[in-house]
Design a protein around this nucleic acid. Sequence first.
DNA 1: CAATAAGCGGACCGGGCGGTCAACTTGCTA
DNA 2: TAGCAAGTTGACCGCCCGGTCCGCTTATTG
Lengths: 206, 206
Amino acid sequence: MTSTRPLRADASRNRQSLLAAAADEFAERGLNASVADIARRAGVGKGTVFRHFPTKDDLLAAIVLDRIDALNAVGERLLDAADPGAALSEFLTVAAEQRQQRDLSFLQEAGELNAEVTRVRAQLFQTVHRLVDRAREHGAVRADITGADVILLMCAPNYVTSYVPDASPDLWQRYLAIIFDGLRPEGAHPLPHPPPMSLDATHTPD
Amino acid sequence: MTSTRPLRADASRNRQSLLAAAADEFAERGLNASVADIARRAGVGKGTVFRHFPTKDDLLAAIVLDRIDALNAVGERLLDAADPGAALSEFLTVAAEQRQQRDLSFLQEAGELNAEVTRVRAQLFQTVHRLVDRAREHGAVRADITGADVILLMCAPNYVTSYVPDASPDLWQRYLAIIFDGLRPEGAHPLPHPPPMSLDATHTPD
DNA sequence: CAATAAGCGGACCGGGCGGTCAACTTGCTA
DNA sequence: TAGCAAGTTGACCGCCCGGTCCGCTTATTG
């Protein structure tokens, strides 16, 4: 299947420009970024976009896939770190930094994009679960916190700062710190509601 | 000015249906809800929508205005509460409940809508500032937290739970509790970044 | 009840969008 | 270097959306 004959030189160049241009355009204008603008920004014709990505959603999926993969790599590396608490903290920091330079938060709004995306996303969730489990066992986060909690809270710092008009690009650090303090065992109050189940099996019939 | 001759009976009825229908439609489909759909839902013609609200944005502004006013009323009432910490907590609870039943979070994305909205929003921000100041003086929240911090974090619980597919409608309580724990003095770690300036003078030249 | 202005509705317009296609250009290979 | 498949392009299509407009309906009022 998918007997991938290697891409022609100019074609693969165009594909790269396209991905870069699309990532920028989406980051600046959200889901409403138009395919025509992306094409212009990449310096190609609109038809070329659709040759590489049959649908606007497929283009989005390709970008998201890269992003998730990169973050997952970081997470897996941190699984071997000496201090599990610091590891979790660094993971969240890297995640926030990544989102800061190019905000693709709306990606979540885009519902399910692609089987590949769901797969790789489930992988990332697994990694986070492991990071959190280790941190919990080590006493770095409170006992009643789950991986799902961290997955959900992960994006909050960027979300929150996105409403500050001329925010310092590092403002997210402040809110990550506050939220992380909320995850710590010291001074924790009992939680009024159980955590959601694991987020993996979620979305899309198949 | 605006010598408002009283609205005709049917007209004011339509205006109400319109506001309700629009609030629902916006909550379900976000900013992309179409005026035609709103009109259909309200049982009126599209032209009627534009008679009452010259622009789609004006309609949105009217809804947002109601919402903010209601929340502000709650906040002001809580300024006299005996326990400032509990008052702040309750304010955040009411705010989250309000957003839970009809999520108008995107309202923020809508940038500035209206001079009236900015005015009333600034009022709400003032109220929050006062609530936070009282709570801080009372030792219910840590010393390095400002009103702006709380305003920004206020919406996070709803935001966060919106990504859980079949979430319990009360799941936000869990994340509000976690974040609130992060705001408490006990076990607080120093914050790596100063707070943003007050959010009031923000947006729109005038 | 008649006169009138306020309100209503939906066909219509212009614009922007995602996606298609057929004519054209270009990198690869023998 | 010749031939061709792979790749490119922008005009074009159908659709949907916000907003306009004008002929019609109806609440109000004396």
